[in-house]
Design a protein around this nucleic acid. Sequence first.
DNA 1: CTGACTTCGAGAAAACGATCACAAGCTCGG
DNA 2: CCGAGCTTGTGATCGTTTTCTCGAAGTCAG
Lengths: 222, 222
Amino acid sequence: MTPDPGRRIPEATVARLPLYYRVLLESAEARVSTISSDRLAEMAGVNAAKVRKDLSYLGSFGTRGVGYDVDYLLHEIARELGLTQDWPCVIVGVGNLGAALANYRGFGARGFRVVALVDADPAKVGQTVADLRVEAFAELGTVCARERIAIGIIATPAGAAQDAADGLVGAGVRSVLNFASGVLSVPDDVSVRKVDLATELQILGFYQLRGANTALNTSRPA
Amino acid sequence: MTPDPGRRIPEATVARLPLYYRVLLESAEARVSTISSDRLAEMAGVNAAKVRKDLSYLGSFGTRGVGYDVDYLLHEIARELGLTQDWPCVIVGVGNLGAALANYRGFGARGFRVVALVDADPAKVGQTVADLRVEAFAELGTVCARERIAIGIIATPAGAAQDAADGLVGAGVRSVLNFASGVLSVPDDVSVRKVDLATELQILGFYQLRGANTALNTSRPA
DNA sequence: CTGACTTCGAGAAAACGATCACAAGCTCGG
DNA sequence: CCGAGCTTGTGATCGTTTTCTCGAAGTCAG
């Protein structure tokens, strides 16, 4: 047992931390200073025991008989998720989706800022989208180094996604968010998360055929 | 319609079916007529035992010593996911994201067609986006009935998401794909899947802080 | 037809995650 | 200071998912 230093947090818990964070933000804005696991669970749409178990992986932040201090908990979760830091992002592929992502407000909400755009289409290079100049895909390495890119966002057509991923990995990027369909192959030390519209719709299709219901959560581990 | 008698398919498996479907489509296009669980697993980025277990929930479609017939398997998965049917979708909220989704090709890939757009902003109503006329949010009920909407896609700001959901549910829609952040509350018989950029980035942030890696899959049950 | 080889299907075990249940620890009124 | 009333933190339990393993069932060369 490694109680403190090697504190391993289960994937399922990590996937829920952003949810708790959002709920706590709402509470903080409503001038709530203390919140119970019960209330937090209700607002997050999960079960209270799960909330307590999840938070206990971060440490013992609650006060028995009282609940959790909202501000303190916010701070702790933010620290755990790295929201206290700045993560410069690059979007690869400035089509419909890429442009929409670049313009998306509340995106850079906490620490995540889109600082560069890259596209393989020479016609797009030089254009300005969301106050950023689109640069050539060939410059990806240079751009990543210059901007100290931490996260690459792939918004290319499916066919170009692997090239995009290879470029990012080659440029030293170790976290990738992939909006293109299809599977990316990357080295073991690179994290990839996939967001796929078609997949989600197909899952809905399955449950629509049956009578059942799905959970409210899409933040699944893998 | 009776989906099938006792066969219950685990959520985790359902979430992977779209992945297998895509991989099989690629194989079919490459004129591959038969595929082993090993090869399929490699292409999908999962483990072979998992592939076999998953497919076994659908039935015994493989041939020992040979593998699976690509076309047959495609057909069976398509049937299970309801891809053989037509699912008319409405997008609620035609901002940056909503418009990008409406224009997204390969979206309506198999059976999922965006047939209506709705927005609460009077200035947007009447505009044409992706060959569709934007209609008033107040007309949502009428629109859903007229177009026999099966799936509602919420692309509104966070503050309007619950209203959008209520409107959809009130109009009889039982499957919702939510791009807005925050938790939706809906009746038990309604399926909701959430796609949240901020959540995904925050999860990447967590693993970036540590040295670890995440799985390639984002299609998590709940 | 036979034997070597391949691959599926499924039972069993292991890992993981969700939930239960309750002792421990806190606050507050009197 | 004490006892009643909350709420956390966590060991125990249960269900789900993943992985392991191997017999069964097929192909194919000769």
